[in-house]
Nucleic acid binder design. Structure first.
Lengths: 329, 329
DNA sequence: CTGAAAGCGCTTACAG
DNA sequence: CTGAAAGCGCTTACAG
C-alpha cells in the first residue's frame, strides 16, 4: 500500500495525498475528507523511509549506549533521557554492551550505520578501552557523554566530579570522629579510579596515611561485597565503609546485619548513586546523590540545543550531595 | 557526502561503489581498494534510509513499549530482549509510557509511523485500558506481548500463569502450617488481578474463607508498603505476607526489621519476580520466579520465527518456581 | 485549490 | 569486471 494506491482510490494525485498526510498547503475540505477516509479504511501508513529521504529530514532517533540496563544507575539515566528526549520529538535506540569490547564497537557501528542523529554514552565504563570508538563516532555525528570526560571535537560531556564527591564522604566521616575508613569498589572503571583518587585525597587531607588494606576491590554483586567486607573486617579495625555503588554497600549492610555488627554504631556505611536500593534496605542507607537525573535532563537539553543551532555546552559539571540516612548519621 | 561523491573521487560509477559497500558482485581488487580508501578518507557512511528504500528492506528495528524501565522486572526483560534480538540483527526502540494513556497511544503511533518491524509490549499494565492501542497496532504489524494475554490476529503472547503461581504460594504457606496469609499488591493491573484471583483460589482450596482484611492494596514503593503492612499487622493476626512484587515485599521486611518482628518465625514474607532485591535484602527474600528472562528469550525467537516464514507461536505459557530463601523456609 | 515532474541516495536487473 | 538506467515511495518547488 503506497501513496499511489491511495491517490488512485481517492481519485486525486499523489501530491494531494501528500498534502493531506502532512496537513500542508491548501486542500479542498471535501477532497481532504475523501482522502482521509481512504487512508483510514486501508490502514495506510506512509513510508517514513521515503518521507525522510525525500524531505531530507532524519528519523529523529538518538542512540544510547549503556553498560547494563539492569543496573539502577543506567536504568535511571535511560528512563530520564527517554522521557526528556521525547519532549523534543526524539526516540531512542538502546544498546547495552556489557564488558565486551567487540559488542561496544559493533553497537556504535550499528548506530552510525542506522543514521541516528546523535549517540549518548552513559557511564565511565566507556572511557579508556572504548575511547577509540567514541572518537571515531564523533567524526560522523555528535557524541554526548554522561558521567565521563573525553575531550574532542563534537564531544559533549556532562558529569559529576566523583573524585570530589568521594573526598567529601571521607572528610565527612573523619569529622564525625571516624578513623578507620574502608573504600570498596567493584569494576575497574574510569569512575572507580576517580573515586579511589578522591578517597586517597580525602585521607591525606585528614592528615592520615593511605593504608592499602583499606582499599578493597571485590566482584560485582551483593554477595561478593558481603564476603569481601567480612574478610576485611576480620583482619583490620573498620568503623566506616564507603562504597563505589549502592549494591556493594547493600552487601556490606547485609553482612553486618547477619553478623550482628551494629550499624552505624560499630560500622557506618555510605553507598553511592542514591538509588532505590538505598531506601529499600534496613537500616536505610546513607548514599551519595550524584544527580544522574539532572545530568540526563541536561544532556537531552544539550542535544536539543545542538540541533537547534544554539551552541551546545562542551563540559558541564553537576553538584553532588550526601544524603544522610540511618547507616551514617 | 553521497555515493556520487565517492564515485567521482574514486573515478568509478556509483554501481561499483555500491558493490564495494555491499561486498556484492564482482569488483576488481585494485578498484575495490581504491574505493575503500576514498570511503575511509572521507568518513562516508551510506544513507541507510536510501538503502532501505531502494532495496525494499527495513531498518530492522523492533519497538518495545514498557511501563517503567527503572522497575527491575522491565529492566530485565528489556536487557534480555535487546541482547537476544541483536543476535537476529534487530535493534530496539525503547518507549517507557508510565501510567498515561495518552503517552501509551502516542508511543504506539510513533513506533508505527517510524515503520518498526514489530512491537513488543511488556507487562500486563497494557491490557485493559490500552488494549485498543494493541489491537490497532496489530492491524499494521505483528505485536508480541510479554506477560499478558490478548487474543487477536497478528498478536503473539508469552506469559506466566500468575494466578496459578500465587495459588501455589498460598498452598505452600498453608502446608507449612501458616494460617493468616496476607496478600499485598500495589498497582491495579491485569496481573495484580490475576494474582489476587490466585490468592483467593488458593485460600478456598485450603478450606479457608476469604477475609477482605487480608487483601491489602498500597501505593507503589518501599515506604508505602511498610506503612500498609504495619497498619494491617496492628489490627489483625498475620503470619505470612505474600506480595505482588519484590519492592512491596522489601517494604514489609524493612518494617518487620525495624519493629523487631522476627522473620520468618513470626511473619514469613514471599516476594514476586525474584529480582535483585530479593538477594539484596536481609534476611534474603523468598520470591516467586516467574521467568521473565525465559519469556524474553522466547519472544525474541518468536519474532525471528515470524519473519523467517516459520509459524510464530500464538500463545506460550512458561512455568514458575518459588525460590526459597530466609524469609520463608 | 490541484497536479506533473524532478529529486532524495541508494540497489539491482540488464547489457556489455 | 563495469556502468547506464529504472525504480523504491515519498516531498516540494513550480505552473496553472
Amino acid at each position: 500500500m503506497t501513496i499511489y494506491d491511495i491517490a488512485k482510490m481517492a481519485g486525486v494525485s499523489i501530491t494531494t495525498v501528500s498534502r493531506v498526510i502532512n496537513n500542508s498547503g491548501y486542500v479542498n475540505k471535501d477532497t481532504k475528507n475523501r482522502v482521509l477516509e481512504v487512508i483510514k479504511k486501508s490502514n495506510y501508513t506512509p513510508s517514513k523511509t521515503a518521507q525522510v529521504l525525500s524531505a531530507g529530514s532524519t528519523f529523529r532517533l538518538i542512540g544510547i549506549v549503556c553498560y547494563n540496563i539492569e543496573d539502577l544507575y543506567y536504568a535511571k539515566a535511560v528512563a530520564v533521557l527517554e522521557r526528556e528526549l521525547r519532549k523534543y520529538g526524539y526516540d531512542i535506540i538502546l544498546s547495552c554492551t556489557g564488558e565486551s569490547l567487540k559488542v561496544r564497537q559493533n553497537s556504535v557501528n550499528m548506530l552510525i550505520s542506522k543514521n541516528v542523529d546523535a549517540i549518548i554514552f552513559i557511564g565511565s565504563v566507556f572511557v579508556g578501552a572504548t575511547e577509540d570508538a567514541i572518537l571515531n563516532a564523533a567524526k560522523r555525528l555528535p557524541v554526548f557523554i554522561i558521567n565521563a570526560v573525553v575531550e574532542g571535537k563534537n564531544i559533549f560531556c556532562a558529569f559529576c566530579d566523583e573524585q570530589e564527591a568521594l573526598k567529601h564522604c571521607v572528610i565527612k566521616a573523619y569529622n564525625k570522629g571516624r578513623k578507620d575508613i574502608l573504600f570498596m569498589y567493584d569494576l575497574d572503571t574510569y569512575g572507580s579510579q576517580k573515586k579511589l583518587e578522591g578517597y586517597k585525597t580525602g585521607i591525606l587531607q585528614c592528615g592520615k596515611k593511605i593504608n592499602e588494606e583499606y582499599i578493597i576491590k571485590c566482584s560485582p554483586g551483593v554477595e561478593a561485597a558481603s564476603n569481601a567486607f567480612l574478610n576485611a573486617y576480620k583482619n583490620t579495625p573498620i568503623d566506616t565503609v564507603i562504597c563505589s555503588n549502592d549494591v556493594t554497600a547493600a552487601g556490606v549492610i547485609n553482612a553486618a546485619n547477619k553478623n550482628k555488627i551494629p550499624i552505624p554504631q560499630k560500622v557506618a556505611v555510605i553507598g553511592y548513586n542514591n538509588s532505590m536500593i538505598a531506601t529499600s534496605i534496613y537500616p536505610a542507607m546513607t548514599s551519595l546523590e550524584n544527580n544522574v537525573e539532572k545530568l540526563s535532563v541536561f544532556t537531552a537539553e544539550n542535544i536539543n540545543r545542538y540541533f537547534n543551532g544554539e551552541k551546545a555546552i562542551k563540559k558541564y559539571c553537576i553538584d553532588f550531595e550526601l544524603i544522610i540516612r540511618e547507616t551514617f548519621l
